[in-house]
Structures are given as structure tokens and as C-alpha cells.
Simulated scan of single mutants.
Amino acid sequence: MNAGKLSPQMLENLIFKHFNNKRQDTIVGPDIGVDCGILSFGDNICVVSSDPITGAVKDIGRLAVHVSCNDIAAAGIEPIALVVTIMVPEGASEQELEDIALQMGRESSRLNVDIVGGHTEVTNAVNRVIISCTAIGKGHKEKLITAKGARIGDSVLVTKTAGLEGSSILATDYENSLIGNIPEELIDEAKSYINHISVVKEGIIAGKFGVNAMHDVTEGGILGAAWEIAQASKTGIELWRDSIPVTRATRAICRHFNLDPLRLISSGCMLMTTDRPKELKELIQGQGIRCEIIGRIIEDMRVIVTDGRAQPIIPPVRDELYKLL
């Protein structure tokens, strides 16, 4: 198997078929394109999601907090707690471990999220630090949003710009390769994207607004997330390439490494569908967050339109970032 998350087909054939969830407490279980497990507690719900960080080095603590909490926000729910597992390779320094804990403590405090437990160990099973977080949120059952609710005729919106997380990782961990090949101000700009990878704010806004479906954009980028939201909703989707926002810095970095910015890991972007797109766009932009209408939900085909020509959006296989790992 290649590096990266499993393909939808492998998940179905190797993993999901062995899980037979039968409890009435389980509202949403594992499925393609679904960010969270959701459990019923009377009139309330508990929303849970787990994510590892495997493709970054320097900002791994910050990324671990935000990537996990973003999944909870994709249900329109505020994250409240994290359980953290940290696997440290033999030979790592105490200072390295403390720096990670410092990052995680700082970022979780900014989100008003408590780290309530977990596990930390030094092991020869890894050759660099691996962090896996389980995020927990709570909310009301009637306000539940998943990736499964997209409706034919909905507009598709995205917040911020494509490739945010991937651009930040590449500018930080591969800076030496970029220096002299692209302007330093673009490298510095891409590094700063780490400050914008939380989607908790727009997720809660969209949850209160009442979008039909929501999915945060992670591995596989915007094209991967678009395919997943269509798969979860059993619909088609049409994206318009010229409408998808990509910064000059991201384009330059992706051009240097020969990567597709629309298939690059993009924590910080939230994909949403609604039948009231202009109202939602104005609401989110009024909070200082860029938001663009980039497509629509259609009956069956999953395509991206470039210069009037429709090309199929294939299922996500491997994120562009893994080409360099």
C-alpha cells in the first residue's frame, strides 16, 4: 500500500465491512466522506472524531489540535475536549516533546478546548513524532449537520483558499528547497497560513445558519472533499475551477514541487452546500473570513469545469503532499 489515507474502495472492502454498529445510541457511524461519529444522549448529541498528524514536523502540535477540532466544527458543533496520543521516537529530546505540548496547550486554549487525557510514550515503532487526537463536541440533535445532506440544486461554497495547510507545511519543512526558487515573501506568506487552519469559527456560523451539508477539506484537497461530499450525499457535483480561490504563494510552491493545489491537504477550508448561497457568503465574509461560491450539487456526474470543458473528479487516493515524504 502507498502512503496516505486509504482509498474509498479499500475502506469499504477492508475496514467498514467488519464493523456492524447496532446500538440505537449511534446516529452516524463510519462512512465515506463522514467527518465524525455521532452518538445520541437524549435530546443532545456527542460528536467525536480522531485524526493523526503524519505529514508535518515543525508545527505538529498546532496542527494536531486544529485538524481534530475542525472535524467537530464540520458538524456545526463547538469542540469542547481533546484526548491526545503522542508517540515519540527513541533519541528525541525532552525539549522537543515539551515544545509540542506547549503548542497544543496554547492552541487548545485559543479554541476554549480542554485536553482531558491521552497517552504519551517513547517507542522504536516510529522514526518521528506521531500525534493522534480524538476531539469531542456536544450539541443539540435537531441542529445536526453532516456531509450526507447535500441536495440537488444546492450551491457549493468554500472558505479561505485551497492548499492552506499543505502550503504552510511545505514552506516550513521544505524551506531550503524553496529559497532561491520562489520569492522569499511568498515563502513567508505561506508559512503564515498555519495561523488560519482552524475552521471552528465558520463551522459554528454555518451550523447556526443551517447549511445542508458540510465537510472540512483535509487530505486530497478540495477535489477530494468535493468527491466525498457527493459520495456521502449520493449526488453529483460540479465545480468551477476559475472560481476556486488559490493564492499566489500556493501556486508558486505547487509549481516548484509539481503538485496540484486542488489535491493538496487544505485544513482551514470548509466545504458547504446550501440553497441560500449569497446569504451565507455575506454572513461568513462579514466575520472577516473569505468565502466563495465554487460550484453546485447536480444529479449524478462529479466534474470540474475548466474553460468550458468538464473533467471527471476521481475519488481521493493519495494527497499531493505525500509525493515529497
Rank of each mutant, 00 (worst) to 15 (best):
I169T: 10
A171H: 03
I229H: 00
L164Q: 03
I222V: 10
A171E: 01
L157I: 04
N195A: 15
H215S: 08
G166R: 05
A225T: 10
V156Y: 00
V158P: 09
E219V: 11
E219C: 06
I182S: 08
I179M: 07
K191T: 14
K160E: 15
W227S: 00
V156G: 00
V156K: 00
V199L: 11
G224E: 12
N176C: 12
S192Y: 01
F209R: 12
K201E: 11
K160V: 03
G180E: 09
E189K: 09
N195T: 14
V200R: 14
A162W: 00
A190L: 03
V156Q: 01
E185Q: 14
N181D: 08
V217F: 09
A206Y: 12
S198Q: 07
G221W: 00
V199I: 14
V158L: 05
G207Q: 10
N176E: 15
I194M: 10
A213H: 08
G203W: 04
D188E: 14
E184N: 11
A206W: 00
H215L: 15
E175F: 00
L170C: 09
A226M: 01
S198R: 09
D216L: 13
L164H: 11
V199W: 09
E184Q: 13
V217Y: 04
A225Q: 03
Y174H: 12
L178V: 07
I182C: 10
A225H: 01
K201G: 05
L178M: 08
V211S: 15
A206E: 07
V156M: 02
Y193I: 11
L178S: 01
K201D: 13
G163M: 13
A171S: 08
G163L: 12
G224Q: 02
T172Q: 13
V211H: 03
A171P: 05
A206V: 08
D173M: 06
D173G: 06
I222T: 10
L164N: 02
D188G: 06
T159W: 04
E228W: 00
I222Y: 03
G163T: 04
L157R: 02
V158T: 10
D188S: 13
I187L: 07
V158I: 13
S177W: 14
G163H: 02
